[in-house]
Design a protein around this nucleic acid. Structure first.
Lengths: 220, 220
DNA sequence: GCATCTTTGTGTATAAAGAACAATAAATAT
DNA sequence: ATATTTATTGTTCTTTATACACAAAGATGC
């Protein structure tokens, strides 16, 4: 058996959240070469005895401090020449975190980390623009056909908040009555019994997702 | 910058076709260690200056002699320990080839190649069973929501042949009238003008797919 | 305390899509 | 000519999707 070429393998993360009525993605400013001082998706090398998913989870904790959130493998990018350091293959993951936990901490090799609205993305390092576009496409797709949307909300939420997430990500208006009718017919949410407080208008019922965290099901 | 661990990267192929009213997958009998003489998915190492997709295409030509067929990246498997030779990450692709071109040639490192019905799969090397299951799931899914099914047919085909493919893969019976009504309403096939010949019953209209080879669209 | 503001919550009528179902037509074989 | 096999075509019913408007609940300002 000949010696086969070896490559470095990285994971890159597309971390989405929603704040200020806008879909945001987490970017880091690179602290080292190549592409030093340029914005990029968070990520890093896969270690010796670590599965790809574990590497993604580790990077996620390092960048955001959060764990136990929704994470799914997206696609693997491996064009020769995509990284000036040599042959580097990257496995992209996408993650959704809810709007409550968003503390960001800059880690080693990172001079800054920031949430960027998806329609105001700066020029990105490597082929990260392509990766991000792919992730956005997947997010829109899954939002329509699965229950991933719930991953962007805290444990209890109002139906208006949920509808809002759909409207932001799909950027189109939805009919309130039809949205609620459809959702309730799926039998995947239940009333929590609590209401929103401290709002200067009629309080809304808080609902909760019937499935466990991280679980998503098809068709919505 | 420290030295980051390097891995070997392979591509594995799940090549589907339909023959004898059954969904088949191409397996090779390994001619070398590890897992010598065991059945496995065709695949091989990604070369130095080759993209992942090029590697998959190259392997496909080596194993089947066919090119220009439908090929899509499936998933990347990278558990440490999945390959006894060391850290090997594999990018799985799935391919569909139509029932006319199925010459198989055993290549180097392969003592035999054979089409296996998906419900009579022998014990497979590595984690190839898991990869195959994943591929099957994806195939069933895409069949229902896209036009991949056409990739399994020759240029012209009868509507019954097409329906048959759906019935085999989804293993359930479909209503002929509803199937045709739905299909024709999508406006993606057109009559070729030709009819089947040499059959001892009413000849059927041969249709052709309006899109180009390799192109698939959503929703069916 | 009453009017105003803002967001919540609900029902019905119509259109479109999906599911169930059977008889005639065109060719070959005997 | 009769039998056999597969191809082709429409209608009814059920389910799902869409379009659309007004009253209720609480906070705020006067």
């Amino acid at each position: 058996m000949h010696a086969f070429p070896k490559s470095s393998v990285t994971v890159d993360l597309i971390v989405f959240t929603i704040t200020d009525n806008s879909l945001k993605v987490l970017l880091i400013k690179r602290g080292i070469e190549p592409f030093k001082n340029m914005w990029a998706l968070p990520g890093g090398f896969v270690l010796e005895d670590e599965s790809l998913e574990d590497a993604a989870k580790r990077e996620l904790v390092e960048e955001t401090g959060v764990k136990d959130i929704y994470l799914e493998q997206l696609y693997t990018f491996g064009e020769p020449g995509r990284d000036p350091r040599g042959r580097v293959i990257t496995v992209a993951y996408f993650a959704l975190i809810n709007s409550q936990i968003q503390k960001i901490r800059a880690s080693t090799d990172v001079s800054e980390a920031q949430w960027y609205s998806v329609n105001k993305i700066p020029k990105l390092a490597f082929d990260h623009k392509k990766i991000l576009d792919y992730g956005l496409q997947r997010l829109r797709w899954k939002l329509e056909y699965t229950t991933v949307g719930f991953q962007l909300l805290p444990k209890t939420f109002t139906l208006s908040q949920l509808q809002n997430i759909y409207e932001i990500i799909l950027h189109k208006q939805l009919d309130k009555r039809n949205f609620r009718k459809k959702l309730l017919s799926l039998d995947i949410v239940e009333e929590s019994g609590e209401f929103t407080e401290g709002v200067s208008h009629r309080p809304a019922m808080l609902y909760k997702f019937k499935k466990r965290i991280g679980e998503i099901i098809e068709i919505l």
